[in-house]
Design a binder for these strands. Structure first.
Lengths: 211, 211
DNA sequence: TTGTTAGGTGTACAAATGTTCACATAGATT
DNA sequence: AATCTATGTGAACATTTGTACACCTAACAA
């Protein structure tokens, strides 16, 4: 790559990292200022505009970063897990491991889901839906839950994703020196996912919904 | 009540309502300023300090307001719903109705859950846990899910609460002129809760967890 | 009735913020 | 080698923000 572009990407990344670091410190993404981001990135405030128009712009690009992380996670999960006894536990643990190594990114995700602009919220939700759809495809490919209609399977996978995503916030708030709490949270989630799947296996389409 | 106190409560409420209105407009709670709140409440900025020390202080008091709304919801649910075929659907619909008539408050709840300070997050989580515990007690009182251990039942009710709470954000983003989308979302949630309960009924304690 | 006080006002000021503009300069292009 | 250009700089600005202070006055207590 040309030197110019390389340097550009470098400060661009520094700006995004600065914003993320702010979130990592427990501050709200929406409360950071352009100047503060620039300062932390080691550039002058006006340099910010060479890369982004807005903090919203930064947020949308952070979603892209999140997207990459999630896709990597999905790939990893597919490689490691076969149809085994511990498939669920393995997947949850993998999610948690990824979560803990990208704390700031996931915290940002949680905030953006409820906080930011409408388009930002949509962007994050899209990523989660993508994840759910991939899970859906995998379940089908494994020949599992064949009793469910396509529609119903979609709802089930969304429920699974929501359940696993549900621990994100709680997990992020547990201090690192409390591994036992973390462990319990993980076990809870594993149980919850199992319940969902047990329920799915036993699901029967309601006798002809009133048409 | 004395005239003084009455007036005090009045502007105090005006300040809280102003903050809530800001959230209702889609803005982040953490991005509102003391001055803006005061202006919208129709008082001078410094008057703010007669009632609150901080915006954080306001937030904690909004959680109290939320708490009241949730308890009212719970009471309402208990009165209306007996053990019937449609108990689940009724409860979900009741939640949605309450949600839609307190949009701002629930939006605030979602934001505070992921956004605010650690103590604020804890406060909101407490409210949700309270809700889950009440549900737990009701399930026990009805003699349902007697196959579950106390521990397990707790996890199940939390899962139910999470599932229902999960639609909150999505529902808030659906424009009012799209009732069909809302309806589908509601049906999805009802199905999801049913799946959880079916799973719970069929749950069997794993054969002696490795002790 | 008189004095006290709590809630609200207005002014004031330092700090932070978004954004503009003219400028510099390393690196690309020719 | 000469020129151009995209990235970063620094000064400047009008706004907005948090908060302190002195003050006013309606409601209260005596």
């Amino acid at each position: 790559m040309s030197i110019r572009l390389e340097k550009k990407q470098q400060t661009r990344q520094a700006l995004m990292d600065a914003a993320l670091a702010w979130v990592d410190e427990g501050q709200d993404f929406s409360s950071i200022s352009i100047r503060e981001v620039a300062k932390r990135a080691g550039v002058v405030p006006t340099a910010f505009y060479r890369h982004f128009t807005d903090m919203e712009d930064v947020a949308l690009n952070l979603v892209d970063e999140l997207s990459i992380a999630l896709r990597k996670l999905m790939r990893e999960a597919r490689q490691k897990s076969r149809i085994t006894e511990n498939m669920i536990a393995d997947s949850v643990n993998l999610y948690v491991a990824n979560l803990l190594s990208h704390k700031a990114l996931f915290r940002f995700m949680s905030q953006a889901l409820s906080g930011g602009s409408a388009t930002l919220r949509r962007a994050v939700r899209n990523e989660m839906q993508f994840f759910a759809r991939e899970l859906e495809a995998d379940v089908r490919a494994m020949g599992l839950l064949s009793n469910l209609s396509a529609h119903m399977l979609q709802w089930v996978t969304q429920l699974v994703i929501n359940t696993v995503a549900g621990i994100t916030l709680e997990l992020l708030d547990i201090p690192d020196n409390q591994p036992s709490q973390k462990q319990e949270l993980i076990e809870k989630t594993i149980c919850q996912v199992k319940i969902v799947l047990i329920g799915s296996v036993h699901w029967k389409e309601p006798t002809q919904p009133p048409q």
